[in-house]
Design a protein around this nucleic acid. Structure first.
Length: 466
RNA sequence: GUCCCUAUCGUCUAGCCUGGCCCAGGACACCGGCCUUUCACGCCGGCGACGGGGGUUCGAAUCCCCCUGGGGACGCCA
């Protein structure tokens, strides 16, 4: 165990999205690699927007991805007393002050500042105010940010970053309803929880110079920061719903394997030479902040698909079969009275890129009756196939070795007897057994279907030949 | 608008720190071919980038400056 303490701190206002998942992954990987502690903290200070459903959805997605945490989940909504005390401490030290400006006043000031070409920062009206305008006037609490000099921090990914303090304004740390705000609680919690390396999204770079003075004001040690670049959509704008699915669990529903998403997310913005395929164990072993890129990256669904295809091809048939059942069920199919599912999976592993595709490809195995594609039936189930079909039925009936070799031998007998090449009647047999013209290899299909089902389907097709 | 970050094939990236091995390598996608009873897989080949301009240097993708492009932040959201 090292003393490295990391955290993932999502706010429960929706599902876990792709960007959050990657941030969580990087934290997880480094925690595992360095044998540190990975903390999960739920940032629900915005009581109105936070929901239990979102918490559950985030937890579920993390479980699916295999991102387990060592501590937590902590809920900020359980810690309001602590924040209150810390706000009071700053007030007592004179490092924070009550601000009585109304929302409307602030909006007007912001707009005016923007118009005159400046940064829309708070003008500090209440900074030096001595007493409230009225005894019961509502107020927020603002942190007194330093007004001159500059803050510099060395980002583990981007290097040194400097801000002039005059760019900063006095941010609100407590709302008029008494609840604390993000920029304040994140500092208190990270410090109180002993987090010493903060890996978070790029969009927080600008928050960092406002948070650093708060660490100091509260007597905390400033942690190290590592800001990972954003994930963009194909049009280079911030990834959002209009670029396709952004929810982690949507990928599960679309038939993706968690290892494919993990692998993809890891390689988006991080690299290890030319290697593309990484297991979780390998990522833990090889991950390092030094190899994380500094520029934003475009989310490429096609590459994710390719990775998913890879993991389906190389996956364990038994496991894939277990996962596939749910997808077959969505098609209204039960595997109970059908062929052995892992065997069926093996015939589809190299032709399905997702479990959805695999379920579609496996459907014919589990339908009680073949559903014929009209065009395929018209083209291939023709009267001239009667002879080879009868021969095939005879040889398959007589087959005592229902193995790949035994089945190949039966087909060979038909070829010898009729003088027809496989290409002459194979496609018709496929349509008879599957219903359409694309499927796994015909011998494989026959083998997996089994003797009884194969013969039933061939005889029924024979009746249709006329 | 202001501030911050960033810049190698369409996309993800290697190389950049420690200039020459790079007329820039890998992967996805795309295009051709091979394999083949179908569809795929696989294999082989092709297309394709150092944003622009100045420097520094014998030599720059690599170092410096400017420009431009892209992203982010500017909330009593997180």
């Amino acid at each position: 165990m090292s003393d490295l303490r990391l955290r993932f701190a999502p706010s429960p206002t929706g599902y876990l999205h792709i960007g959050g998942a990657r941030t969580a992954l990087f934290n997880y990987l480094l925690a595992k690699k360095e044998r540190g502690t990975f903390i999960l903290r739920i940032e629900d200070t915005d009581v109105a927007r936070s929901t239990q459903e979102s918490v559950d959805a985030i937890l579920q997605a993390m479980t699916w991805l295999g991102l387990s945490y060592d501590e937590g989940p902590y809920y900020q909504s359980d810690r309001f007393d602590l924040y209150k005390a810390k706000v009071q401490e700053l007030l007592d030290k004179g490092l924070a002050y009550r601000c009585y400006c109304s929302q409307e006043e602030l909006d007007a000031k912001r707009e005016a500042a923007m118009k005159s070409g400046g940064k829309p920062k708070y003008d500090g009206t209440c900074r030096e105010r001595n007493r409230p305008p009225a005894a019961d006037a509502p107020f927020v609490v603002r942190f007194k940010s330093p007004q001159d000099g500059e803050v510099t921090f060395v980002d583990r990914i981007k290097g040194p970053i400097t801000f002039r303090n005059e760019e900063l304004d006095d941010i609100i740390i407590q709302r008029s309803d008494g609840t604390p705000t993000y920029n304040f609680v994140v500092v208190v919690d990270d410090a109180e929880m002993g987090v010493n390396l903060i890996i978070r999204g790029d969009d927080h770079v600008n928050n960092t110079p406002r948070q650093i003075p708060m660490y100091t004001a509260l007597g905390y040690q400033v942690p190290v920061f590592a800001h990972v670049p954003m994930i963009l959509g194909a049009d280079k704008s911030r990834l959002s719903k209009r670029h396709g699915a952004t929810s982690v669990m949507a990928y599960q529903e679309e038939g993706y394997l968690p290892e494919a998403l993990v692998n993809y997310l890891a390689r988006l913005g991080w690299s290890h030479g030319d290697q593309e395929i990484f297991s979780m164990a390998e990522l833990i072993e090889k991950f390092s902040l030094e190899q994380v890129g500094r520029a934003a990256g475009v989310f490429n669904p096609e590459k994710l698909l390719w990775l998913n295809a890879h993991y389906i091809k190389s996956g364990d048939p038994e496991r894939l079969a277990t996962l596939l059942r749910e997808f077959l069920a969505k098609l209204g199919l039960s595997t109970e009275n059908g062929p052995d599912l892992p065997a069926a999976v093996k015939t589809l592993q190299e032709r399905a890129r997702t479990l959805v595709e695999m379920a579609e490809g496996a459907a014919f195995y589990y339908r009680s009756e073949v559903e014929f594609d009209a065009e395929a039936a018209a083209k291939f189930l023709t009267a001239d196939k009667r002879t080879p079909f009868e021969a095939l039925i005879r040889h398959l009936e007589a087959c005592t070795d229902w193995s790949h070799d035994g089945i190949v031998a039966a087909f060979q007998n038909v070829m010898d007897e009729t003088g027809l090449k496989l290409g002459k009647f194979g496609p018709s047999v496929r349509v008879a057994l599957v219903g359409c013209t694309t499927s796994p290899g015909i011998h494989e299909v026959v083998e997996v279907l089994g003797q009884t089902r194969t013969l039933v389907r061939l005889r029924r097709a024979l009746e249709l030949l006329n």
